[in-house]
Amino acid sequence: MSSRKSKNSNLKHGECISQVQRILRERFCYQIPKGNLFGVQAQYRHLIELLKRTAIHGESNSALIIGPRGSGKTMIINQALEELMQIKDVKENVLQVHLNGLLQTNDKIALKEITKQLCLENVVGDKIFGTFAENLSFLLEALKKGDRTSSCPVIFILDEFDLFAHHKNQTLLYNLFDISQSAQTPVAVIGLTCRLDILELLEKRVKSRFSHRQIHLMNSFSFSQYLKIFKEQLTLPEEFPDKHFTEKWNETVQCLSEDKNVKEILLKHYHASKDLRSLHMLLMLALSHITSSRPFIIPTDLVEANHLCNMDSKANIVHETSFITLVNGKCPGSGARRPGIKSNITSESLLSV
């Protein structure tokens, strides 16, 4: 009877764990917003106000979100768009176009992607654009036909914005900023970049059409806020199906945040880098240790995850290599000595590598 109960509890825990891993991995990997935006509240209010003026009042705007990697640029734009789409009548009227400088490597590819995301392919029909200029003129004509009262607002999100500045003549940026300065279709152009000198990369004609509105993110939160972020990133939402499991999981997370060893690990991460991606990597490694027989994260999991994060890749290569191979200079699986390798290698010389 007891074995049957333990089997049922393991099965139940297994279902809960699969859902926990799905929720937390989405949160860690896809920058799905959760909880408060510590240290960037003022920047977030500025951004959401900017997007509301475009979506509700038909005002065209342009801005750059500038900050180091992991400072929360993608997170605040995702949360701002999520909040914007919850406003009545906005979700059906506002169009979004997401571009990435790593994927859209030239203006021609970018224009095709814009045409696809704006669902203008049906308008194109069987028409074949022979040149980049024809494709651009078609897109601009489609955007310029409307006015602020009758057209759907379009929000352009340009990730890795500095890479678009390297496109030939910066034609795409010029035309997007040009539309945002005119009284045609309401357009908001939001660029995300790590480059502080981004304005120096823009041509004079492009710079003259940009609003010069910049939102800087610098990870200015304290360690106490860092601990709150740690708890919020691991806490399960109230709508999780198993209420009993949710309570136990959240209690475990609270105990983790108060554990001395866990605090020391987090303090080292905080001083090394306030990059939340490194925190997500630590939590992802700790999350991989839970099983149906041990369904909750314990301090030992975070200690092991911290060890993996701080492990030296060169030291790993030496550890994986046979000591005899290094001393004798022989290739694995063969009796031949490698030419030019001496056999008088000492343990001191290996440690100094």
Rank of each mutant, 00 (worst) to 15 (best):
C194V: 14
E92Q: 10
R69G: 09
L143V: 05
L350S: 07
A183D: 11
L276F: 09
H289R: 15
V20F: 04
T193V: 10
I179R: 11
C331G: 06
I76T: 04
L139A: 00
I341F: 14
C331D: 05
G70C: 06
K274F: 08
R53G: 01
S334I: 00
K231W: 03
Q19G: 02
E83N: 14
K342Q: 14
L120V: 02
V253S: 03
S288K: 14
L81W: 06
E251M: 07
V124A: 07
S322C: 07
P153S: 11
V253L: 04
S2I: 03
A286L: 08
H244T: 07
G340F: 13
P68Y: 10
D197E: 14
K88N: 10
N169C: 05
T74L: 12
F132Q: 14
H166E: 12
Q181H: 11
R195S: 15
S71K: 11
S347I: 15
E264M: 10
L143F: 09
L173R: 06
S18R: 15
R277I: 02
H167W: 12
G72V: 02
D107M: 07
N261F: 03
E141H: 13
K228L: 08
L276K: 06
K88M: 04
E247F: 04
K144M: 06
S18H: 15
L84Y: 02
P299Q: 11
N78Q: 13
S211F: 07
Q79G: 05
F177I: 01
I198E: 12
R45M: 01
A286T: 07
G101N: 04
Y174N: 04
I290E: 05
T252Q: 13
